[in-house]
Every structure is written in structure tokens, then in C-alpha cells.
């Protein structure tokens, strides 16, 4: 029993109106060892160096860049104040690309979550060969994006693609996935679902940690499978679901490679406006027009947007996510 508990118990026993004086536990001051500190810092130095170089310095540098007109050849930076940010706000293509990105987030995040959940539930009930299925379903996540895009260019062809062939088999008309503006974003979502294995593995791990006794007790009490799922399973895995939603939202807001490989792979812009995502437009500004200041401003705007959306998600999550043992 801790000292605090002992003091509280003693106060209750004496029934005294004066609360017992709590004695603060004496902190034993350990001798500072610079050798141990040095060793600790050395152990984490690879991460520290990487963090400083690729995150802190890069972000600081990009923030500086966003307030300048940067000439790549001479290294000359001319301070321009908030001009780059003003250009970002005034550019209608920024609005178009942001809207496209938001629509993609709204489509892709829930779909990936639902599909990952369905697959995780199925795998959770597989008795034999679950390891094999788990590996097979995770393998696409390991496939390089370029290879995936090459395959999906064939699969999504509106005339003779395999996906439309399947739809046709069921009597459904297949859309022009890659050339009809209305189907451009769904096509990228479909390609993104190829990598659903990552979310699935996380959810599967969470499902495996749901205590079987709870399910059994609920079943004994007459709860059906749907009730058990929504009243027990979902609350128990809600921290993982929340994590998956937050991480996938951030990834979707930064979408670049799928859109670039499907629609801008030859370096041109001969794609419908519906395929212009924020990350793609940022890349074009930096590496096709060499507007590094403007691109840096765009990057910071995206950072702020992601920060805001994540903050809202955290607020909602704190109210809805069930943490075992409370918070």
C-alpha cells in the first residue's frame, strides 16, 4: 500500500474533522551521471539526427522559404512577406485541388476503414491458415506504388479493363474510370483500397485483444451477434479505429503518388481537373515552375489544415473513444 493510502486510511479511522496532513514522499535525489546521459543520447542519436535533418531543419527551412522569392540557380532569396500566401489564396487551382482532396478524403477514409474492418473480422474468425491469408492481404501494401499503378491502369480501363468486365458480368455498366471526370476520384480510391492490408492488420490485432469472456457473458445474457459487435467489440477496439481514422485522414490529405502515377506520370497535365490533388499541384509549382516559395507556402497551408482536422478528430475522439481503465 502506498504512503498516501496509508495516510488516508488513518484519517478515516480517527474520524477527525481535521484532515490528516499528507506527507509528501521524499524524493531521493539520484546522482547525475553524465556518462549515462551521454550513452542515452548516443543510443537515440540516429533518430535525433534524422529528426533534426529531415523534420526540424527541413520544416524550418521551408517556413523561411515560404516568405521569400527563391532563385534556385543563385541561391538568392528575396523576402516577399506574405505574398506567397496571398498567391496561394488567390489561385483558383488551389481551391480546386483542395476540394478534390477533401472529396477524396471523404470517400477513401470511411471506405478503407469499412473494408479493413470486414477483412479483419473475417480473418479473426478463420481458424486454419489465418497467417497465410493475413500475409496475402498484407502483400499489396508492400507492392511499390509504380507497379500498382501500372496494374491498375489496365484494370481500370473503361473499355476492356478487368474491373468493368466483372461489372459487366453482373449486368452493370462499367464507367470510364480514368477519363470520365466523375469517376476519376473513385478510381483513385479503388486503387488506394489495394493497400487496405495495413489498416486491416491493426484492426485484427485489436480484435484479437477483445476479451473473449466479455463476448461470452453477453451471449449468455442473450445478446445477438450484432449487439455484441456494436456494444462490445466496437467500443473495445475504438482506440485502434480512432488511430486508423486519424492516420488515414492525414495520408489521404497528402495523397500524391496514386494520382500522379495514374494521371500525371508523363510529367504533363493532360488530366481532368478532377484529378488535380493538392499534393500534385504543390509538386507542379515546385518542380515544373520552380516556384519554391509558393510551394512552401502551400505546404504550410496543408500542414495547418491537417493540424486543424486532426485537432477536431482528437476532440471528437476524446468523447467517443473507449479507453480501458479510463483516461
Amino acid at each position: 500500500m502506498s504512503a498516501a493510502h496509508t495516510v488516508r486510511a488513518a484519517a478515516e479511522l480517527t474520524d477527525s474533522p481535521q484532515p490528516a496532513r499528507r506527507r509528501r514522499p521524499r524524493k531521493v535525489r539520484e546522482k547525475y551521471s553524465w556518462r549515462e546521459s551521454l550513452a542515452g543520447y548516443l543510443f537515440i542519436s540516429p533518430w535525433l539526427i534524422g529528426f533534426l535533418t529531415f523534420t526540424v531543419i527541413s520544416m524550418t527551412w521551408s517556413l523561411v522559404l515560404s516568405f521569400t522569392d527563391y532563385n534556385l540557380a543563385t541561391g538568392r532569396q528575396t523576402p516577399v512577406g506574405f505574398e506567397n500566401y496571398a498567391l496561394v489564396v488567390e489561385d483558383p487551382k488551389v481551391v480546386t485541388s483542395l476540394l478534390n482532396t477533401f472529396v477524396f478524403v471523404v470517400l477513401s477514409v470511411p471506405l478503407e476503414l469499412v473494408l479493413a474492418m470486414v477483412l479483419a473480422l473475417l480473418l479473426n474468425n478463420v481458424r486454419r491458415g489465418s497467417g497465410l491469408f493475413r500475409t496475402l492481404l498484407y502483400l499489396p501494401k508492400m507492392t511499390p506504388a509504380v507497379a500498382t499503378a501500372a496494374v491498375f491502369l489496365l484494370l481500370l480501363n473503361g473499355n476492356d479493363g478487368a474491373i468493368n468486365a466483372v461489372l459487366e458480368f453482373f449486368g452493370l455498366p462499367g464507367p470510364q474510370w480514368l477519363s470520365d471526370p466523375d469517376w476519376v476520384k473513385p478510381s483513385i480510391v479503388v486503387m488506394g483500397l489495394w493497400g487496405v492490408g495495413g489498416s486491416m492488420v491493426l484492426l485484427l490485432a485489436a480484435l484479437r485483444n477483445v476479451p473473449r469472456e466479455l463476448q461470452e457473458a453477453a451471449a449468455v445474457d442473450g445478446a445477438g451477434s450484432a449487439a455484441r459487435f456494436f456494444r462490445i467489440t466496437v467500443p473495445m477496439i475504438s482506440p485502434t479505429v480512432f488511430f486508423v481514422v486519424v492516420v488515414n485522414t492525414i495520408a489521404a490529405l497528402q495523397v500524391f503518388d496514386q494520382a500522379y502515377l495514374l494521371f500525371y506520370r508523363d510529367g504533363n497535365s493532360n488530366a481532368p481537373d478532377a484529378a488535380l490533388f493538392y499534393g500534385v499541384y504543390l509538386f507542379q509549382q515546385a518542380f515544373q515552375q520552380f516556384n519554391f516559395g509558393l510551394a512552401a507556402a502551400m505546404a504550410w497551408l496543408l500542414f495547418v489544415i491537417i493540424l486543424g482536422i486532426t485537432a477536431v478528430q482528437m476532440l471528437v475522439g476524446n468523447r467517443t473513444v473507449h479507453y480501458e481503465g479510463g483516461r
Binding site: S179, D180, P181, N268, S269, N270, A271, P272, D273, A274, Q284, Q288, Q289
Partner: peptide
């Protein structure tokens, strides 16, 4: 290159009824 890209994009959005 930007002019070329913008022109091609204009062609695409027109041909796609956007």
C-alpha cells in the same frame, strides 16, 4: 511548359464536358 500543360488541361476539361 506551363502554357503547354494549361492548354492540354483546357482541352481535356472541354472534351470531358467539365
Amino acid at each position: 511548359e506551363q502554357i503547354g500543360n494549361d492548354l492540354e488541361n483546357a482541352v481535356i476539361v472541354t472534351l470531358s464536358d467539365e
